[in-house]
Design a protein around this nucleic acid. Structure first.
Lengths: 363, 363
DNA sequence: CTGTTAGCGCCTTCAA
DNA sequence: TTGAAGGCGCTAACAG
């Protein structure tokens, strides 16, 4: 018996499934079935139901649905920083793919802050997400504990704990990075530096390792002093570039762990009057949309956001829907050559450089 | 009598408010009160409850809470395009302010696509948001109809329908734009162009009008041929710049309706060998974070994302919480001078400018 | 194939 | 101040 509890939001006519049922002269169960496209509903009734729905402008209450069904239909996406353009592009892809798979997404960023990370986790838990993609390029231990313990399927990039319910997206950094290094080597560069991401991130280390490996493949000896640690921000790129400028023996080309870092490098180079690519070649990583309009347009190693998103959601769905989840999924990278890379300085003239690697004369 | 309905997610021990209540030896009502910080709970019991909560790692189910209380605690944010860096910065601010006010946010982007817009609306409705901030800088009629009809408080930027429940954030474009124009005029520019946003957006028109007005204030006659229509994207900036380059009598300075447009202009200028600011001064709008590292660093008119977010949430809260909602809220803009603006060509020398673009290579 | 009904997990009134 | 109990809007057994 109703006690006429007046809920704050309830004003006048209440627009629930009951109203629809009444208008269509069917039971609420039939309305529910119609909405959820259960095939066994009489087309006649279905039509009446849809008509009623649309006359009343009925919109199902998703929270109630989630409660009743025990399924939220939401996939979480944890990123590190929304203001880094790479992530909005990722979000876009993730959302598109999720939508196409009938899921909604819940995005939360950690901002590299443990407190925010706590919040992220809590949100995912409170909203009962069915799985979460951790795209911070780190392992995020607390996240693993809290979520994995509760059997929330997880997918990480590059590396993650070996546990049931956890999948990995293995990015083939080596492919793109090798192309990049070979590209530089072919232009005549022998003195190539690398500005990494924060080395406590496994993914950042992977990129750095791919670089060292590629260098070795080209017969170039890596120099520790040219391996700088950045932090995947423009400011980090600027700082790293300052270090490069301070050293006596400078590299003729720099590869960066992401495009924001490259942007910082480009900026600093501009500041001190170094021309890119004439005085210094720069290679980015990610190939964000903006790389194309940087000055000069940035040669970058492309990691497809859509591929990442696709892999992540495929992995999550496999767990959620129980369709043969795999431990690993592959994503490739590839070089996109633009104009921030060119011959090393001196390659075009007879200028004798120092005793170090003599740039192969080309053209 | 339980019919032992086995929900898909329920595995073994179920972790609900009941478990906490049992462990703390109180009723679920007391647990609920404790969680919601109702002051009348016995501190003793409260302590027991909190202890139980954290021993069990209990996390309330937010959807159930929303259902029961009739309040979702969610504010919607509709943006046009997440890949435009302005918006992530806005989202950041919006989220911070919302969180501080005890709300969560639900972001959805229209991508300038009516279909996506439909989706946006539906999402907001399904999730029962308590208010939505429409930051697309457009009026978005369907949104108004669907949401306002259902008494969802709305806040628009610059302009919106006159209705109860709808507030406006009035951005004082004129202030910043005037500063920009005065700045250019002070440098000696008399031939100043403007690349607007899509003119069907009221906000874009407002900016263009602020420009024309400011020009007049400085005693400069506006020239229709230098008023180009862009679309707030880099590509649009590039296209507009192409038009400028094609014309015989070119402006010596260009003001843009947003920073992405300016980025396109910078890019195109670079492409054709035009030096900024030596050959052309460029002023942006928004002052996104990246403006600082553009090449050259972009002089821009700052519109604070935090101010916008603050105003939007203040407005929404006033409606939701019924604390004297106002029709309008103010946000100011101001010029930030960097290095993309300088004296017009010829100002420092007696050089006679030729008709074509003289690709004087920088440095 | 349709209707009835018992929850989903929480909030909140009401009585104690 | 606490506990008992009835919804919130929807889903999903179960019976018809």
């Amino acid at each position: 018996m109703s006690r006429a509890v007046q809920h704050p939001k309830k004003r006048g006519k209440l627009l629930g499934i009951h109203a629809v049922a009444a208008k269509a002269r069917v039971s609420i169960a039939t309305v529910s079935r119609t909405i959820n496209r259960v095939p066994t509903v009489n087309p006649q009734m279905a039509k009446r139901v849809w008509a009623a729905i649309d006359e009343l402008g009925y919109v199902p209450n998703i929270q109630a649905r989630a409660l009743g069904s025990g399924r939220s239909g939401v996939l979480g996406l944890v990123i590190s920083e929304i203001t880094n353009p790479f992530f909005p592009e990722l979000i876009q892809g993730f959302e598109d793919v999720a939508l196409a798979s009938g899921y909604e997404i819940l995005v939360s960023s950690t901002n590299y802050d443990p407190k925010r990370m706590e919040l992220c986790i809590r949100r995912m838990l409170e909203r009962k997400v069915e799985g979460v993609a951790v795209m911070t390029f780190g392992i995020e231990q607390p996240l693993v504990e809290e979520l994995a313990e509760r059997d929330v399927p997880l997918v990480f990039v590059d590396a993650g704990p070996e546990r049931p319910g956890i999948s990995l997206i293995k990015v083939n950094y080596h492919h793109g990075v090798r192309q990049g290094v070979q590209h530089l080597a072919a232009l005549g560069h022998r003195k190539i530096g690398f500005i990494s991401g924060p080395m406590h991130l496994h993914s950042a280390r992977s990129r750095a390792e791919a670089f060292s490996l590629s260098l070795a493949e080209c017969g170039i000896k890596p120099r520790a002093k040219w391996m700088l640690e950045g932090d995947h921000t423009m400011e980090g790129g600027i700082r790293a570039m300052e270090q490069i400028l301070d050293s006596a023996d400078r590299p003729t080309a720099v590869m960066c762990s992401n495009d924001m870092t490259a942007l910082g490098v480009l900026h600093k180079a501009y500041r001190v009057g170094l021309r890119v690519p004439d005085d210094l070649s720069v290679v980015g990583f990610d190939d964000i949309h903006m790389a194309e309009v940087m000055i000069p347009p940035l040669t970058s190693i492309r990691m497809s956001r859509l591929d990442l998103a696709q892999a992540a959601i495929t992995a999550l769905r496999a767990h959620v829907e129980g369709t043969g989840p795999q431990r690993e999924y592959q994503v490739d990278t590839r070089l996109v050559v633009r104009e921030s890379t060119g011959y090393p300085p001196g390659a075009m003239t007879d200028l004798v450089k120092n005793g170090k690697a003599e740039p192969a004369r080309r053209r």
